[in-house]
Design a protein around this nucleic acid. Structure first.
Length: 561
RNA sequence: CGGGGUGUAGCUCAGUAUGGUUAGAGUACUUGGUUUGGGACCAAGGGGCCGAAGGUUCGAGUCCUUUCACCCCGACCA
């Protein structure tokens, strides 16, 4: 490609509506342009890069035995009613009617469509397993699109769905997909982590996310420094912390006057007791589909509540902070809440199983109980894992920020049951498919790569993704000798099948090299004034290094890049 | 959906507290000339419904009302 003939609108200024590095650089580099909130055009460079990522995804999936399809983007609302997700997905679904007043949905994900495709077509265990995927535009009417390609409304996603005879076979495929995804992200030269994830409302026994590590990531990951444990903070586990050495000797629910002492800190100081031995009560209002309820979560005073875990524990749609009014209406006294004689729903964190020598609220104003115990109740993992907590391997846990680029899911029979998608098993019995579902955010990967490797000069892309591996920069395009030599390398590389672009624009050297740095061509061959001495330079973008080389050695040097 | 901010040339922004020539700069663009290794210089040009609608006024980019769009923080995010 000749630079002068393609369309690469680079800008010197950073666009006023971009904040994130990847967003700024992709726009400045002429990869994308914005259309409306959460909507982007892919310009020639962006399109090529996206296609290259897409090709890698496809290649690895096909190797793993997956089969590509392409389902219609516009999906009939009936399918969504059938699965029960029309209301649940809510405002994120972009709905509209056709001229006959039929309701349609722009696909945000395609479980329904895919189940609909295979049901009544795959009818026997002999046709299983099957793993179908597509790489296709999705649309989610996000409440707040942001960060450019990172969280757009329209985006390119690979979504795959597998169908199995048994749970075991689905798990086998799940593991295969984990390996396949890891290969894909490795080929894309991403620094990524596979972590345990919250299965969420969708259910299922296992879910893993693939995160590109980057400070700008929206998710917090808990990772171990000595084993390969990693988890989204929403589901992260830790080894039980060791109890402090000084154990308070209180026993037997002694009522103690504690006027106005409400916070963990105040109580800890007053009683000279580690927060570990205080019973912390967190009051929330749980919202269910048909009702609301005040719920109390008990933790050790040294711990904090992880809300996603709490939501899962009570099976609520969401948890809101309870207001003072709601707390007192529920018969609770803020600051003095304890587990004794507590009428309303409450849950204990697992770390409180069999806990003794505790100090808790007495459910009575200005009184606490000392030496109380937790004997029985509903226990669950509720705790927010903190940096510095111990991993079960003994290592140290710390936080990292991640950009979610992949998510694999053991779905089970949720959709096949609700949508009546069955097959005949070996016993001749009609059975719902056991399903897995696997997603990759293809356009988000492009943002993730730039986020992770972009530097102060601009974009840095791995060769596997870069639109052009070689950029031939003719320093002075009016200089016949330079231009002829540039043309020659250009033709040579092209005939070798390399992705190469010839910067034949009439700009000066400074402007062209700035663009080369911004766009991030892996190698820029600078044909300049030293050509008369028989030399050119190769600029290595990632290392920001210039290499002088004799024109005689150029060909063999380029072959080895 | 709550809170905040911004809309003026392709892009980045002045101008708006206090209304008043023909609305500015930089950059980008066109033409001519000089220049040619780190976003050149000189000269001459083209480019604006001042987000939209309504209002106040002799007069509105500027004041008032309504509205739309975009961005940020939060809520939300299979």
């Amino acid at each position: 490609m000749r630079f002068s003939r393609t369309f690469i609108p680079t800008t010197k200024e950073t666009p006023n509506d971009a904040v994130l590095k990847s967003h700024i650089l992709l726009i400045r580099g002429g990869y994308i342009s914005s259309v409306a909130s959460g909507l982007y055009n892919f310009l020639p460079l962006g399109k090529i890069a996206l296609d290259k990522i897409r090709a890698i995804v496809k290649e690895e999936l096909d190797k793993a035995g997956c089969v590509e399809v392409d389902l219609s983007f516009v999906t009939p609302s009936e399918l969504w009613e059938e699965s029960g997700r029309l209301g649940k997905f809510g405002a994120e679904l972009l709905k509209f009617r056709d001229r006959k007043e039929n309701l349609f949905v722009l696909g945000p994900t395609h479980e329904e469509m895919m189940v609909n495709l295979v049901r009544n077509q795959i009818t026997s265990y002999k046709q299983l397993p099957q793993n179908l995927y597509q790489i296709k535009t999705k649309f989610r009417d996000e409440a707040r699109p942001r960060f450019g390609l990172m969280r757009g409304r329209e985006f390119l996603m690979k979504d795959g769905y597998s169908f199995h005879e048994t749970e075991e076979d689905m798990k086998r495929e799940f593991e295969l997909m984990e390996k396949t995804y890891s290969k894909i992200f490795s080929r894309l030269k991403l620094d990524f982590r596979v972590v345990d994830a919250d299965s969420g409302a969708i259910g299922g026994s296992g879910s893993k996310e693939f995160h590109v590590l980057a400070d700008s990531g929206e998710d917090t990951l808990v990772v171990c420094d000595s084993c390969d444990y990693g988890a989204n903070i929403e589901t992260a586990k830790r080894a039980e912390p060791e109890a402090p050495e000084t154990v308070p000797e209180f026993e037997g629910d002694l009522r103690f006057h504690t006027p106005n002492l409400k916070s963990i800190e105040e109580l800890s100081r007053f009683f000279r007791v580690e927060p570990y031995f205080l019973l912390k009560a967190v009051v929330k209002k749980a919202i269910f589909e048909d009702r609301e309820e005040i719920v109390v979560f008990f933790l050790r005073g040294s711990d904090e509540l992880e809300e996603t875990k709490a939501v899962g524990t009570v099976g609520a749609l969401e948890l809101l902070d309870a207001t003072e009014k709601e707390i007192s209406e529920a018969g609770l006294i803020a600051g003095f809440i304890g587990n004794r004689n507590l009428e309303i729903s409450h849950y204990f964190d697992n770390s409180l199983k069999g806990a003794k020598h505790l100090i808790s609220g007495a459910n009575e104003i200005d009184y606490h109980l000392i030496g109380t115990e937790v004997e029985s109740g509903n226990f669950a993992d509720l705790v927010l894992v903190k940096e510095g907590d111990r991993c079960s391997c003994g290592g140290n846990l710390s936080y990292k920020k991640g950009i979610e680029v992949g998510h694999i899911f053991q779905l089970g029979t949720k959709y096949s049951e609700s949508m009546n998608a069955n097959f005949l098993n070996r016993e001749g019995k009609s059975t719902p498919f056991v399903m897995g579902t696997y997603g990759i955010g293809v356009s988000r990967i492009l943002a993730g790569i730039v986020e992770q490797s972009g530097d102060e000069l601009g974009i840095v892309l791995p060769e596997s993704v870069a639109p052009y591996k070689f950029n031939i920069l003719v320093s002075n395009s009016k200089n016949g000798e330079q231009m002829r030599f540039g043309e020659k390398i250009y033709e040579d590389l092209r005939s070798c099948g390399e992705d190469v672009i010839l910067d034949d624009r009439k700009d000066r050297f400074g402007a062209k090299i700035k663009d080369a740095e911004l766009i991030g061509f892996p190698y820029t061959i600078i044909v300049g004034k030293s050509l008369s001495d028989g030399e050119v330079e190769i600029f290595h973008r990632a290392e920001q290094r210039k290499e002088k080389i004799s024109v005689l050695d150029l060909e063999s040097r380029l072959e080895n890049l």
